[in-house]
Simulated scan of single mutants.
Amino acid sequence: MEKTLSVQGMSCGHCKMSVEGALKDLDGVSAAEVNLEAGSVDVTYDSEKVTVDAMIDAIEEQGYEVS
């Protein structure tokens, strides 16, 4: 499945790496691509292994707000 999440507070390459890394560490996430201009991240995942809530928690643990 694919899901796009809106993430506030990302402004640089480090932000991009933090969010993508946190998502890719989750079992079931196969891809995460941050778009800094849009303030979003596109996630490709297996819904049987990981929930959207778990992905949001992983991003928020990095210090970013998800809406």
Rank of each mutant, 00 (worst) to 15 (best):
21 G>Q: 09
60 E>I: 00
4 T>C: 00
52 V>A: 02
64 Y>W: 05
1 M>K: 14
10 M>W: 05
4 T>L: 03
57 D>G: 06
8 Q>P: 01
67 S>Y: 10
15 C>L: 01
56 I>A: 06
31 A>L: 10
55 M>V: 05
57 D>H: 04
9 G>Y: 00
24 K>Q: 13
32 A>E: 04
52 V>W: 01
51 T>G: 11
61 E>V: 11
4 T>Q: 09
52 V>M: 04
14 H>V: 11
8 Q>T: 12
26 L>F: 03
42 D>N: 13
33 E>M: 07
6 S>K: 15
31 A>K: 14
13 G>Q: 08
32 A>F: 03
16 K>T: 06
66 V>C: 01
5 L>T: 05
60 E>N: 06
22 A>N: 11
28 G>Y: 00
41 V>R: 05
23 L>Y: 02
35 N>W: 02
16 K>I: 06
11 S>C: 08
1 M>I: 13
37 E>M: 12
25 D>K: 13
60 E>R: 05
10 M>H: 02
33 E>L: 06
65 E>A: 12
51 T>S: 15
15 C>W: 05
50 V>Q: 10
13 G>F: 01
9 G>I: 00
39 G>T: 01
60 E>M: 03
34 V>I: 00
51 T>M: 11
45 Y>K: 03
63 G>V: 05
25 D>E: 15
14 H>S: 14
28 G>P: 04
63 G>N: 08
59 I>Y: 10
13 G>R: 04
42 D>I: 11
46 D>V: 03
49 K>F: 11
22 A>R: 09
38 A>V: 09
48 E>G: 13
61 E>G: 12
8 Q>N: 14
65 E>Y: 09
55 M>W: 06
20 E>W: 06
16 K>V: 07
67 S>I: 11
4 T>I: 14
33 E>C: 02
22 A>W: 08
67 S>C: 08
41 V>H: 05
33 E>V: 12
56 I>S: 03
66 V>A: 05
35 N>F: 01
65 E>V: 12
67 S>R: 12
20 E>R: 02
59 I>D: 11
50 V>Y: 10
17 M>R: 14
45 Y>G: 01
50 V>M: 11
31 A>F: 07
54 A>G: 12
27 D>N: 15
27 D>R: 11
14 H>R: 10
30 S>T: 15
33 E>T: 13
58 A>N: 00
2 E>K: 15
26 L>K: 05
52 V>S: 01
60 E>K: 04
59 I>R: 09
